[in-house]
């Protein structure tokens, strides 16, 4: 019995010594990959996104669409109309159909929802550089990372057509990268509505304030 107890004690201590303890309560981190106790079907042969895969010559599971193709995908509904991505329509290009002239007006009608969406998306994608109010004083300016950031209240930008703003968001301009791959077209248009609202906030006059609210303004 004595031998058994000694052996038992040594085994328990050895297991605890080798296996260590859980790290779940701020117990630090480890470089060791996760352990699969019962690996049964944890990892299957199916493809998962953005994983290496030897089947394709370029070795990735998430293949890009072949060059020159456009995914059919879900249509974008604007009012009663539905547009597909392959169509040459302002809502996808920022151009007047069949030309390379920028559309003057945002093809997506503005609603409170669109404006809120625009505000949210602006905060995510634009505010880091252009700043929360669009004056170009975002965090990148504060840390001195970007030499030049466009001030959205500049006359040059205020007077741009909506289509041109769309084009710039989609393809980038000067130091600004292309945001087309990151922001879907309907969100780009929502952002443009919000940018217009920001600009308007600095260009407004007393005449823009409804008669009954003017009294509430501080002179």
């Amino acid at each position: 019995m004595r031998y058994f107890l000694v052996l038992f004690g040594i085994t328990v201590l050895a297991v605890m010594g080798i296996a260590g303890r859980r790290l779940d309560d701020g117990g630090g981190t480890t470089r060791k990959p996760p352990i699969y106790v019962f690996p049964d079907m944890d990892r299957q042969l199916k493809l998962r996104p953005q994983e290496p895969n030897a089947f394709f010559p370029n070795g990735v599971s998430s293949q890009l669409p072949p060059p020159g193709t456009i995914a059919r995908s879900e249509p974008l509904r604007v009012g009663d109309e539905a547009f597909y991505r392959y169509q040459d329509v302002p809502v996808f290009t920022g151009f007047v159909s069949g030309t390379t002239n920028f559309v003057e007006h945002n093809p997506i009608p503005v609603t409170a929802q669109v404006m809120q969406r625009g505000q949210e998306r602006y905060a995510i994608h634009c505010a880091p550089c252009h700043g929360a109010v669009g004056d170009g004083n975002g965090i990148t300016r504060k840390i001195g990372a970007m030499p030049v950031v466009g001030n959205l209240h500049e006359k040059r930008i205020v007077s741009m057509a909506d289509g041109e703003l769309f084009y710039v968001i989609t393809h980038g301009r000067n130091l600004m990268g292309a945001y087309g791959p990151n922001i879907p077209p309907e969100d780009r248009w929502a952002i443009i509505w919000y940018v217009r609202a920001l600009q308007r906030s600095r260009l407004g006059t007393l005449d823009d304030v409804p008669q009954e609210l003017r009294a509430s303004l501080n002179p």
Binding site: V15, A19, R21, R22, D24, G27, T29, R31, I35, V37
Partner: peptide
Amino acid sequence: TAVTAGVWYYFTPKYTRVGYQPI
């Protein structure tokens, strides 16, 4: 008891996964 305690403590993602910080 020892085996039960060991399985309870170790055979869980709290032990097998938590803390994993790859390079």
